[in-house]
Simulated assay, not measured.
Amino acid sequence: MGTSIGTYKGFKPHILMVLAQIAYTFLYFITEASFNHGMNPHVYITYRHIVAGLAMLPFAYFLERKTMPKLTIALLLEIFVLALVGVSLTLNMYFVSLNYTSPTLLASMVNTIAALTFVLAVILKLEDANIRNPRGIAKVLGTLVSLAGVMSMTLYKGPVVKSLGHPLIYIHRGNGVVHENWSKGLILTAASYITWSIWYIMQAYTLKRYPAQLSLTTWMSFVGAA
């Protein structure tokens, strides 16, 4: 029993990351279905982060009220920039690009975020790409494999995969016309993922001065919604 608990704790971050990606996958389809039924992307982002902020607020208050660092003007400005880049700018470009591309493209290209974040972290000397070390080799190879997979998913046009049953989510396309502008969608998607990677790097710096993850998430949600 003790060994099982120890193993679970050791792999807990990996399990949570897998669950987060599964949740994102469902989110892509639900979001596109909402947009194609008339939901405005900017309104969607506002509602989404108001709900996120309200959901996180009780956890942030009760779990971090005794350890929460004091907010200063400099920290508030930093949180504003984080919300602007990671919530407002990133997600507006991200969800607008969904109108021009497809959930499959976004789900595949999201893997570039880890690769871009790693490259930026190496440039800023937050990560060590030591190719003489097995960990460094694994990071570099993982980045290359991720980028190769994204390129394959984006450029390769294979046979259509048909569903054997009825779809769980119906995505309505007005008058049977699919409004896709792949060049515009790809530019918006790429810009979104670049700012997303920058946002991760910025959070690493902010969390050193404000080590309260739940509170920071709550602040970013409300400021981003505003």
Rank of each mutant, 00 (worst) to 15 (best):
F29C: 11
N36T: 15
A60W: 11
L77H: 07
G142W: 13
R132V: 04
A114N: 07
F35W: 12
T117Y: 01
L84R: 02
L126W: 05
V85Q: 03
K70E: 09
L77T: 08
I79N: 02
A55F: 10
A23W: 10
L84K: 06
G86Y: 04
F80V: 08
G10Q: 13
A121Y: 01
E78R: 15
L63N: 07
L57S: 05
E32P: 09
F29V: 15
T31P: 14
S146E: 03
R135H: 10
L84A: 10
F80I: 06
R65Y: 05
N133D: 10
L16K: 05
V81E: 02
L116V: 01
Y61R: 04
K139I: 04
P69R: 04
A129S: 08
H37K: 13
H14D: 13
Y44K: 00
T117G: 03
K66Q: 02
D128W: 09
I131Q: 08
L63M: 07
Y44E: 00
V110G: 01
V110W: 00
G53C: 06
L16C: 07
P13Y: 08
P134T: 15
K125T: 10
L84F: 09
L120F: 02
M17A: 08
K66T: 01
N36Q: 15
Y44V: 01
M68W: 02
T31Y: 08
T90S: 01
L76P: 04
K125E: 15
D128C: 14
L89K: 07
N111W: 05
E64V: 00
G38I: 03
L63T: 01
T101Y: 04
L71Q: 01
T101G: 10
A23M: 13
S108R: 12
P103G: 10
T25M: 02
